[in-house]
């Protein structure tokens, strides 16, 4: 098996057939006074129809930045400096403003990290669904409103809440309302950026359950972002692990769970309790994520890695390499193991 360079044609693919979303060598940077923060560095992945790809990693590793780059809602000081994002056969990065306006929400929508901030405080929930519908479809206000009521019902909000303002709803209901807005035009794909982080565990579980049902019902794909690895293992088909702006490992959930290849994945796994399992092993990861203005040389994880290979990991940057048909990881240890076996 050969290590694949990011530019090579062969990249971590999902299933056979054409992917719905395909991200290649994405690079995003924030231009700040301190210098350029490389928040996303040569990231590639695919998502196919009706698939859930989970993205996990510590705070600040660039998860939201990827989500915003794919939807092209990044604003200065963030700049996409390289790569390609294809949705079916259209190039998202090449779209004009008008094309984007028509494309987004109809094909691809996003659920923001914080539901409170994603809702306009001075408009009723209903109005915020209705204007999304009317922006894309030539329907009357009444028709749009009927659809809004339907959507609220789908996400489990009683229709008499349609004229409520965000501050009148509970945290869970707000999150459901945001999901309803994302569903408004029946998109093929929804990006969900930590849709349940601010909620308590019970509500969190309910909402995850509902998202799963909605997915089965409407058949959209999900790019699901979270800190919570155990949640991902249950919920997603495949998982990507990010570290310091790079993809450290990507592969089918079970495989990542049973046979993690990257030391960071192993650590991350140990630092979270599993939903089903006993809540005991709670080791944090020692050290802190690197400063992305001046990332460490070689493997970005080496300063925190206790199995780093002296010399090599400081010097040489590991590329993603295949360890099983759909499993890729970027770690020099894989070579070592291969050499030993």
């Amino acid at each position: 098996m050969s290590a694949i360079s990011p530019s090579a044609a062969k990249t971590p693919e999902s299933t056979s057939g054409q992917p719905l979303l395909s991200v290649r060598n994405l690079e995003v940077e924030y231009r700040t006074k301190r210098g350029r923060v490389k928040a996303v560095d040569h990231v590639s992945f695919d998502i196919s129809t009706n698939e859930v790809l989970g993205l996990a990693g510590e705070s600040g590793c660039g998860k939201s930045t990827i989500a915003h780059a794919v939807t092209r809602i990044l604003k200065p000081p963030a700049y996409i400096t390289g790569g390609q994002i294809m949705f079916k056969s259209t190039d998202i990065l090449g779209m004009s403003d008008d094309e984007l306006r028509a494309f987004r929400w109809e094909h691809l929508s996003i659920v923001f990290q914080s539901a409170m901030n994603a809702l306009n405080p001075v408009l009723s929930v209903g109005a915020q669904i209705i204007d999304a519908i009317q922006a894309h479809m030539p329907v009357s206000k009444d028709e749009a409103r009927a659809r809004a009521l339907e959507l609220l019902d789908v996400v489990g909000i009683h229709s008499n809440r349609v004229d409520s303002y965000p501050h009148q709803l509970s945290g869970g209901m707000r999150q459901r309302a945001v999901i309803a807005i994302a569903l408004a035009l029946n998109p093929e794909m929804i990006i969900m950026d930590e849709p349940t982080t601010a909620l308590d565990v019970v509500v969190q579980k309910q909402i995850i359950q509902e998202i799963r049902q909605l997915k089965d019902k409407f058949g959209f794909s999900i790019l699901f972002i979270t800190h919570d690895l155990s949640l991902l293992v249950e919920f997603s088909d495949r998982i990507g692990i990010m570290y310091a702006g790079e993809l450290a490992e990507i592969g089918p959930s079970r495989e990542i769970f049973d046979n993690p290849q990257h030391p960071y994945t192993v650590r991350l796994m140990n630092s979270f309790p599993t939903i089903s399992g006993p809540r005991i092993e709670l080791k944090g990861i020692p050290g802190s994520p690197p400063d992305l203005v001046t990332p460490p040389s070689g493997c970005r994880f080496h300063p925190r890695c206790d199995v780093a290979i002296a010399g090599r990991c400081q010097e040489e940057h590991p590329e993603l390499q295949q360890t099983s048909p759909r499993h890729f990881a970027a770690c020099h240890l894989i070579d070592e193991r291969k050499g030993n076996s």
Binding site: T71, R104, W105, I110, N120, P121
Partner: peptide, 9 residues
């Protein structure tokens, strides 16, 4: 919410 309004089209 402003970003999302733009994204909504």
């Amino acid at each position: 919410y402003v970003t999302m309004a733009q994204a909504k089209g």
